[in-house]
Write a protein that binds this DNA or RNA. Structure first.
Lengths: 193, 193, 193, 193
DNA sequence: GATGAATGAGACTTCATTCAT
DNA sequence: GATGAATGAAGTCTCATTCAT
């Protein structure tokens, strides 16, 4: 069936990138080989190489975003949920998740070539909604003070998560993941309490 | 003189990228034309297209980093200096500074192809030193409490700066630059005081 | 099939050289056109222009050497066989056989670039073997005296054959092929009887 | 003076070829460097690269031919003179004389591109004249019988000289230069006496 | 539907030649 | 007269795409 074959191609592209190739140097012949299909067959399901890459990016993002959301736990309290997110992000970053891997091989500029402005905005909207869900839970549990404007709350949550990722991906800062998670939690508390 | 011609080429590349082209789709003929020299002349000063791009990245980064450092003010107090940095970053991001522009058109993966691991680490080291300089000033002025570990201090400073950049570059969050700067300062104070 | 396409290319190269082009001035596009295939197709069967030329030389030599050997007749006596060789060489030289044509457009120096030292030595070894076969027949028939050392016999046979070729290819000496063949036979007899 | 500079260039070309480069791969920049002059200066004395190569070939040939003729000795008898020629040829071949070196790097085909048909014929005429001079001396001394036609005499002389060169340049035949010279003399005597 | 041989546009790079100094 | 920086025509080779099987 058509969607299966397409997925086969997505997985081929992902495997190549995970082997260290960068997206814009992939050849159609490589993709076909990595996907276990013939070169010509790619053109039965996609109209061009660019479409293959664009759709692979979208596929990967949705897959990863869904699994990311699935891992979220709102039932064991905000702190547990927050730390769970950090863990998931750390795993994604250190294990080179498909999405992370793909993203690291395209610049923002190229990304726009592949993914429409609209798709990007949609993604961003979903992320903001997720952030707000988390903040709502934190408020309910009284972890953070209610009087702060929502914009500031978002600012802080984004900040600690980004700082966490930065620490993880820059070993020169010489902090363990656990230590960074504690700092993230501490920073969040102090800035929002 | 040789360095002048090279600079001419760097500027040609930068102008192309600022016109919206992405680094890895540039043709040598375009670069030559944008630089106002003949195609063959490029090869008098660089041995390959890759060398042109690599050296342009290094040139741009060093130029920008120097000018960034030059704009720092340590003499009017920490808060003024901190806000100055935010302003500079905002200007760089919103005006598409050459470096920002170039960076947005290469993924991390490609970046490694062009810039050696060692050069990357060197850059990171310089940034950490800069962060520490700022934190030292904040400590001297009593803006932040001395008992916190330096790692945590860095974590927070990086976090607010990254969050600030994130707000600036994602207009969907609907915050003005000034507002975001206030949040950054507030977050810094609350998390480190 | 792969070997057929390669042969198609060999024939293309040969036809170009027979039209007066010299090997090292051939362009891939010309070769492709002369072979009746697309430029890119050449690179499906050969990895570079140099490989095309090298393999064409080897192909042509083997083909010609085989047909040369096939024309040899050991069954009608030494003189008939010897004159047959001269005839074959004369035809090859005057009709611009593929091999002769190719050889005339590469210097020894270039030849070594294309054909390995080992291949050259192998060829030479085969030629010596051929010479010895002829000399053995001459000895059996009593055309030449047995007491001469084999090295001298070879020396003479090579000498008359080379002189014959020299006469053929230098019309200034104003000898007909038939006359030259008679001289070759006479010289051989007198020097070896 | 003009001729001096030209000679400087000839010597530059010769030195390059003696270093193993082949004529048709030389770059003007290399020739200029090897000649110790600027690239542009070449074009003050020659109108093109082809002219440089053509004139170098002519220069080298004439120089070598003259020195070859100069070494000939007609005053110590034919055998001494004949053997002297063999020695000179052997030296030229084994020591890679400039001419020999240049010749080995152009095919006959290329040679025609560089040297006019007329020049070639002229050279051949001179060689025939030389051969005839030698044969005259041999006749005077009674080394060879007078009744043979001149064409046959030439045929034999050319044959032994070519066979000698062939032996020298093909070590696989495993004959020393001295042995080959004896065979050459022997062959000449037997075929012409 | 699946394939991969064939293709040619177009990329990078070289280098003979020019010309301002 | 001497130079070499600048040039662009032209070469080799790649690779996305097509299409006959």
């Amino acid at each position: 069936m058509s969607e299966e074959k397409k997925t086969q191609v997505y997985l081929g592209v992902i495997s190549l990138v995970q082997q260290g190739r960068s997206l814009n140097e992939l050849k159609v012949s490589e993709i076909a080989e990595a996907s276990g299909i013939g070169k010509g067959t790619c053109y039965e399901y996609f109209s061009s190489k660019e479409e293959i890459i664009r759709e692979t990016l979208l596929y990967t993002f949705h897959k990863e975003f869904d699994s990311f959301c699935g891992l979220l736990q709102f039932d064991q309290g905000f702190e547990a949920g927050f730390r769970q997110i950090l863990t998931v992000m750390e795993k994604a970053l250190s294990q080179f998740s498909p999405f992370q891997t793909l993203m690291s091989s395209v610049g923002k500029r190229e990304l726009k070539q592949y993914v429409s402005e609209e798709a990007m905005e949609n993604i961003m909207r979903q992320m903001i909604r997720l952030i707000d869900l988390l903040l709502d839970q934190a408020l309910q549990e009284g972890v953070i003070e209610p009087q702060r404007p929502r914009e500031y709350q978002r600012f802080v949550l984004i900040g600690v998560m980004q700082a966490y990722c930065f620490q993880i991906t820059n070993p020169q800062l010489q902090i363990s993941a656990a230590q960074a998670a504690d700092y993230a939690w501490q920073g969040l508390r102090e800035a929002l309490a």
